[in-house]
Structure formats: structure tokens, C-alpha cells
Amino acid sequence: MNRRYIYIFILSTVTILLGTFGYMIVEHLSFFDSLWLTVVSVLTVGYGDIIPLSDEGKVFTLILIPIAIGIVTYSLGVVAASIIEGSISEEAQKKKMMKRINKMNNHFIISGFGRVGEKVFEQLQNDKQQVVVIDEREEVFEQLRHKAYVIQGDATDDSILIQAGVERAKGLVTTLPDDANNVFVTLTVKGMNPNAQVVARAEKDGSEEKLKRAGADRVISPSHIGGIRMAMSILKPVSTDYVDTIFSSNNENYNVEEIQVSGHSSWHNCTIKQLDVRANYGVTIVGVKRGTQFIRNPAAEEVIQREDVLIVLGEQAQLERFEQLV
């Protein structure tokens, strides 16, 4: 607790106790009447039902009231200052946050911070990505404002997306529970930044096609994926547990990375066997994306080409070293 509030409490308590016992002594009043007279005097209410009658009581009141008024004035000043400072501090924090967001490039935006949005946020944070969260609810803003970049507002509003830096963003994940809103957000984002990757949540069966027509690069149905995972958990529990260890946010040492072969890479026209990736780098190439073609479980004789995207599995330190070489 703020020390100033402690001082106010102590001073107020001491003043009321002194006034109460003072009136008991000089006016010979009961404890309750003395307490009543002290409180109405301190608060300058003055009901007049109980008043000091003796000269000693009047002198005591003349001393008590200025002291009490000073304490009350000080208390009101402290409370008012705290409210003003809090408002100013909050406004300053918002401006500081907006300045940092305005400097961001290639960041990610999350629209909606429900159960799905929260998991997306955790995964991106674990991957050390810059993230801006948009949510209408004040409790979400209060929850995140000290540990993340968050904007309180409606993601379907163009001005809110602009505040989040959508024109400079690398991608946006819209996790709103309403499919129509996700379609609207997708259309708006693609209109502002056609190069931004958009991943959209879909709840209804017919919404996936609509979201793709709106421009979504990926459409994810949590209920569909959840159903498949539950079925796989009962049919192939060991395999499911293994996949979970790879994608679990708690497993920071083991990961999957997408690594693009640069145009000047010495690996061009080399086979996976020649590179002996597993022995030399401790990672495994589990897939290759070449243009629109996806090569799953590539053979040892597969030739690596420039601009190929390699899907690589391994420990994080090994993946980072491998990416630098590629």
C-alpha cells in the first residue's frame, strides 16, 4: 500500500481517538456521544444536537477543527493526486506503447484474445516474435498492457488495424468467435496489406470457403482439428504424444522450422545424401516445398534447389546453426 495512505489512516485514527477521549474528559460525555461530536466536528457537518457547553470544551473544539480540516484537506489532495497521476500514467503508457507499435515492422497481429487467441499469443511469444493484440474487452487490456502490446478496440474497424500497424505487419491471425467478423477482418487486412499472411478461424462448416475467397491464406477450424486429435489420441496415443512433444509450447529445445534455401547457397544441386544433413548437423529434413509442389519425406537422392523451403526437425540450437549455413 502507498505510504501516504498509511499516514492518512494513522493521522485520522489518532485525531478521532484524541477528540473522542478529549470530549469525554472535558465535557463528561459518553463514549458514543464523544465519538459522534468528534466526527461531526472533524467533517465540519455540525448537526447541533450535541455541542460543547463548557469553555474548556469550546477551546478544545477550536484546536481540534483546524487540525481536522488540515488532515481532511491533505487526504482529499492525496486521493485526487493519485487519481490524476493514475490517469496521466495510463495515458502516457498508452502513448509510449503506440510509439513502439508505430516503429514495428514484420510483426504479427492477433485479432481476438479468447481461448484460441491466447494460445496463438503464447506460441508466438515463445518463438520470440513481436505481437500486437487487438481486443474490445477492457479486462483483456488490463491483463496484457504491462506485458504485451495491446490495443483496446474492434478489429473490424479500419482505424484500429492501422493503429496496430497492419500495413507493416508480416501476418495477422483472426480468432474472433464470429465467422462473419473474421471474413470482414480478412477482407480489410488484404485490402490494406496484400502481402500480409492471414490465418483465420472458422467455426461453421461453410465458412472455410468464404474465408479463403476473402483472401485468407490459411483457415483453421479448432473444432475440426480438436476432433481429429481426440480420435488420433485414442487410436494412436504414442504417435500423438510424440507429435505433442514437438509442437508443445513447453518444449523450447525441440522444434520445427521452415528454412528457405538462398539464391546463392552452395547447396544448390546437391542431394540430401551428399549433404548428409542428419550426421553433419543433427537435424532431419521431413519435407520440401518447391513452388506449389510439396515433397513429403524426401528421398536421399532428392536434389536441393534454390528457393526451396525445407521443413526441418531438430533441437533449436542445431536448427539455428543449420539455418545460417543454408
Score class of each variant (00 low, 15 high):
T245D: 05
V133K: 05
V309D: 04
P222N: 02
W267Q: 04
N253V: 08
Y47E: 04
K170T: 00
Y242M: 11
M192E: 02
G291Y: 03
G48K: 07
S12P: 01
G206F: 06
A216M: 04
K103Q: 10
E302F: 15
L319C: 10
I225N: 02
R296I: 07
E56C: 13
Y74L: 14
N250P: 00
S89L: 13
A80G: 11
S54L: 06
I10H: 00
E139A: 08
P237N: 01
G287H: 03
K236A: 08
T174G: 06
K94G: 01
G287C: 00
Y47C: 03
F108K: 03
G314S: 07
K96C: 01
A196V: 06
G22I: 10
V14F: 11
L11A: 15
E302R: 15
E27V: 05
R3T: 00
Q129V: 10
Q152N: 06
P177N: 03
Q163I: 02
R321M: 00
T15K: 12
I225L: 13
R168M: 02
H268E: 03
F31Q: 14
P177I: 02
N251L: 09
L11T: 12
I228M: 10
Q318K: 12
A317S: 08
A155C: 00
A216S: 11
R201Q: 14
R4T: 00
K190L: 05
S223E: 03
V14P: 06
Q324T: 06
S111R: 01
V189P: 10
Q316A: 04
T73G: 15
V238E: 00
D217A: 03
V189Y: 11
L43S: 08
Q316Y: 11
S82L: 06
E85P: 04
H28D: 04
I311C: 12
L11F: 15
I63L: 14
Y23E: 00
K273V: 02
L124I: 08
Q143R: 14
I246F: 13
G215D: 02
G171W: 05
R321T: 02
A81K: 15
I51K: 07
I311Y: 15
V133G: 10
Y47D: 02
I246N: 13
V219A: 02
L235D: 03
S265K: 08
L124D: 12
L35N: 03
T156V: 03
A155R: 01
R290F: 07
G153K: 13
Q318F: 13
V140L: 03
I220H: 03
E203N: 07
M232I: 02
A68P: 05
S266D: 08
A68L: 08
A200E: 04
G48A: 10
F294S: 03
I160T: 09
D276T: 06
T292L: 10
V256P: 03
G46N: 12
F184K: 04
I246H: 09
I246K: 14
F21P: 07
A202R: 13
Q130A: 05
G22P: 04
W267F: 15
V277C: 09
E139D: 05
E167A: 10
M104Y: 09
Y254I: 14
V45F: 15
K96N: 13
K103H: 11
